[in-house]
Protein backbone atom coordinates (compact mmCIF):
# COMPACT_ATOMS: atom_id res chain seq x y z
CA UNK A 1 0.00 0.00 0.00
CA UNK A 2 2.81 2.31 0.92
CA UNK A 3 4.49 1.71 -2.40
CA UNK A 4 1.27 2.41 -4.25
CA UNK A 5 0.75 5.60 -2.32
CA UNK A 6 4.27 6.75 -3.00
CA UNK A 7 3.85 6.14 -6.70
CA UNK A 8 0.53 7.92 -6.61
CA UNK A 9 2.01 10.92 -4.82
CA UNK A 10 4.90 11.11 -7.24
CA UNK A 11 2.46 11.03 -10.08
CA UNK A 12 0.45 13.81 -8.45
CA UNK A 13 3.54 15.90 -7.96
CA UNK A 14 4.64 15.58 -11.55
CA UNK A 15 1.11 16.43 -12.63
CA UNK A 16 1.24 19.50 -10.47
CA UNK A 17 4.55 20.50 -12.04
CA UNK A 18 3.09 20.00 -15.47
CA UNK A 19 0.28 22.30 -14.43
CA UNK A 20 2.63 25.01 -13.29
CA UNK A 21 4.75 24.70 -16.42
CA UNK A 22 1.71 24.89 -18.60
CA UNK A 23 0.33 27.90 -16.76
CA UNK A 24 3.57 29.76 -17.13
CA UNK A 25 3.73 28.99 -20.82
CA UNK A 26 0.17 30.11 -21.22
CA UNK A 27 0.81 33.33 -19.46
CA UNK A 28 3.63 34.18 -21.80
CA UNK A 29 1.60 33.11 -24.79
CA UNK A 30 -1.45 35.03 -23.66
CA UNK A 31 -0.13 38.38 -24.76
CA UNK A 32 -2.99 38.53 -27.25
CA UNK A 33 -5.32 38.78 -24.22
CA UNK A 34 -7.63 35.96 -24.94
CA UNK A 35 -8.55 33.17 -22.61
CA UNK A 36 -8.38 30.57 -25.31
CA UNK A 37 -5.45 28.55 -24.17
CA UNK A 38 -3.84 26.30 -26.70
CA UNK A 39 -3.44 22.77 -25.52
CA UNK A 40 -0.57 21.89 -27.81
CA UNK A 41 3.00 22.49 -26.74
CA UNK A 42 4.72 20.15 -24.39
CA UNK A 43 1.69 17.93 -24.02
CA UNK A 44 1.97 14.42 -25.26
CA UNK A 45 -0.94 13.03 -27.17
CA UNK A 46 -1.76 10.52 -24.44
CA UNK A 47 -2.44 13.29 -21.90
CA UNK A 48 -5.35 14.59 -23.94
CA UNK A 49 -8.81 13.63 -22.75
CA UNK A 50 -11.67 14.16 -25.17
CA UNK A 51 -14.94 15.33 -23.65
CA UNK A 52 -18.29 16.00 -25.27
CA UNK A 53 -20.83 18.35 -23.73
CA UNK A 54 -24.40 17.63 -24.76
CA UNK A 55 -26.96 20.37 -24.46
CA UNK A 56 -30.47 19.42 -23.36
CA UNK A 57 -31.60 19.92 -26.96
CA UNK A 58 -29.15 17.26 -28.13
CA UNK A 59 -26.54 19.55 -29.62
CA UNK A 60 -23.06 18.17 -29.04
CA UNK A 61 -20.01 20.29 -28.29
CA UNK A 62 -16.75 18.41 -28.65
CA UNK A 63 -13.84 19.60 -26.58
CA UNK A 64 -10.81 18.28 -24.80
CA UNK A 65 -8.68 18.76 -21.76
CA UNK A 66 -5.71 17.08 -20.27
CA UNK A 67 -5.29 14.68 -17.40
CA UNK A 68 -5.58 16.71 -14.20
CA UNK A 69 -7.90 19.37 -15.63
CA UNK A 70 -11.35 19.74 -14.13
CA UNK A 71 -14.37 19.78 -16.40
CA UNK A 72 -14.71 23.47 -15.52
CA UNK A 73 -11.14 24.00 -16.76
CA UNK A 74 -12.12 22.36 -20.05
CA UNK A 75 -15.02 24.80 -20.50
CA UNK A 76 -12.94 27.85 -19.52
CA UNK A 77 -9.75 26.92 -21.40
CA UNK A 78 -11.58 26.13 -24.63
CA UNK A 79 -14.15 28.92 -24.39
CA UNK A 80 -16.91 26.33 -24.64
CA UNK A 81 -20.05 28.31 -25.40
CA UNK A 82 -22.01 27.84 -22.17
CA UNK A 83 -23.17 31.20 -20.81
CA UNK A 84 -22.77 31.65 -17.09
CA UNK A 85 -20.95 28.34 -16.58
CA UNK A 86 -18.65 28.38 -13.55
CA UNK A 87 -19.79 31.68 -12.05
CA UNK A 88 -17.90 31.21 -8.77
CA UNK A 89 -14.76 30.00 -10.60
CA UNK A 90 -14.61 26.59 -8.99
CA UNK A 91 -14.92 27.58 -5.34
CA UNK A 92 -17.98 25.45 -4.56
CA UNK A 93 -20.28 28.38 -3.94
CA UNK A 94 -22.65 28.10 -6.90
CA UNK A 95 -24.11 25.36 -9.05
CA UNK A 96 -23.64 26.88 -12.49
CA UNK A 97 -21.23 24.11 -13.59
CA UNK A 98 -23.83 21.41 -12.98
CA UNK A 99 -23.37 18.45 -15.34
CA UNK A 100 -25.30 15.20 -15.68
CA UNK A 101 -23.40 11.94 -16.20
CA UNK A 102 -24.46 8.64 -17.68
CA UNK A 103 -24.93 6.07 -14.92
CA UNK A 104 -21.86 3.92 -15.77
CA UNK A 105 -19.66 7.03 -16.04
CA UNK A 106 -21.03 8.38 -12.78
CA UNK A 107 -20.35 5.11 -10.99
CA UNK A 108 -16.78 5.05 -12.30
CA UNK A 109 -15.88 8.52 -11.01
CA UNK A 110 -12.99 8.07 -8.59
CA UNK A 111 -14.33 10.40 -5.91
CA UNK A 112 -17.86 10.58 -4.55
CA UNK A 113 -19.36 14.04 -4.06
CA UNK A 114 -18.70 15.57 -0.64
CA UNK A 115 -21.32 17.30 1.51
CA UNK A 116 -20.38 20.74 0.23
CA UNK A 117 -20.78 19.67 -3.39
CA UNK A 118 -24.12 18.02 -2.66
CA UNK A 119 -25.26 21.17 -0.84
CA UNK A 120 -24.64 23.21 -3.98
CA UNK A 121 -26.18 20.60 -6.27
CA UNK A 122 -29.32 20.83 -4.16
CA UNK A 123 -29.80 24.35 -5.55
CA UNK A 124 -29.31 23.29 -9.17
CA UNK A 125 -32.07 23.05 -11.75
CA UNK A 126 -32.95 19.61 -13.11
CA UNK A 127 -31.05 17.79 -10.38
CA UNK A 128 -30.59 14.07 -11.08
CA UNK A 129 -29.06 11.14 -9.21
CA UNK A 130 -26.05 11.34 -11.50
CA UNK A 131 -25.48 15.10 -11.22
CA UNK A 132 -22.07 16.49 -10.35
CA UNK A 133 -20.39 19.88 -10.38
CA UNK A 134 -17.93 20.15 -13.24
CA UNK A 135 -15.39 21.94 -11.07
CA UNK A 136 -15.10 18.88 -8.84
CA UNK A 137 -14.41 16.34 -11.58
CA UNK A 138 -10.73 15.88 -12.37
CA UNK A 139 -10.01 14.28 -15.73
CA UNK A 140 -8.20 10.96 -15.80
CA UNK A 141 -6.97 9.09 -18.85
CA UNK A 142 -9.78 6.55 -18.76
CA UNK A 143 -12.36 9.33 -19.04
CA UNK A 144 -11.36 9.83 -22.67
CA UNK A 145 -14.52 10.00 -24.77
CA UNK A 146 -16.68 11.08 -21.84
CA UNK A 147 -20.08 12.54 -22.69
CA UNK A 148 -21.84 14.76 -20.17
CA UNK A 149 -25.18 16.52 -20.42
CA UNK A 150 -25.53 20.20 -19.63
CA UNK A 151 -28.91 20.76 -17.93
CA UNK A 152 -31.55 22.74 -19.76
CA UNK A 153 -30.92 26.45 -19.61
CA UNK A 154 -31.69 29.46 -21.69
CA UNK A 155 -28.79 28.34 -23.91
CA UNK A 156 -30.90 25.57 -25.33
CA UNK A 157 -33.87 27.73 -26.08
CA UNK A 158 -31.59 29.96 -28.10
CA UNK A 159 -29.79 27.20 -29.96
CA UNK A 160 -33.03 25.43 -30.83
Amino acid sequence: MLVINTIRNTARLSLRNAYIRNCLTNEIRATNFTRTFSLGLALRQQDVVNVTFIRANGEKIKSSGKVGDSLLDVVVNNNVDLDGFGACEGTLTCSTCHLIFKVPDYDKLPEKPGDEELDMLDLAYDLTDTSRLGCQITLTKDMDGLEVTVPATINDARAA
Binding site: R16, E27, R35, D73, G90
Partner: peptide, 14 residues
Protein backbone atom coordinates in the same frame (compact mmCIF):
# COMPACT_ATOMS: atom_id res chain seq x y z
CA UNK B 1 -5.10 18.69 -6.80
CA UNK B 2 -6.64 21.68 -5.16
CA UNK B 3 -3.31 23.45 -5.02
CA UNK B 4 -2.86 23.19 -8.74
CA UNK B 5 -6.44 24.19 -9.30
CA UNK B 6 -6.14 27.29 -7.17
CA UNK B 7 -2.97 28.17 -8.96
CA UNK B 8 -4.72 28.01 -12.30
CA UNK B 9 -7.50 30.28 -11.11
CA UNK B 10 -5.16 32.80 -9.58
CA UNK B 11 -3.25 32.85 -12.87
CA UNK B 12 -6.48 33.40 -14.73
CA UNK B 13 -7.26 36.28 -12.46
CA UNK B 14 -3.83 37.73 -13.09
Amino acid sequence: MSFAKNLVYSRLKL
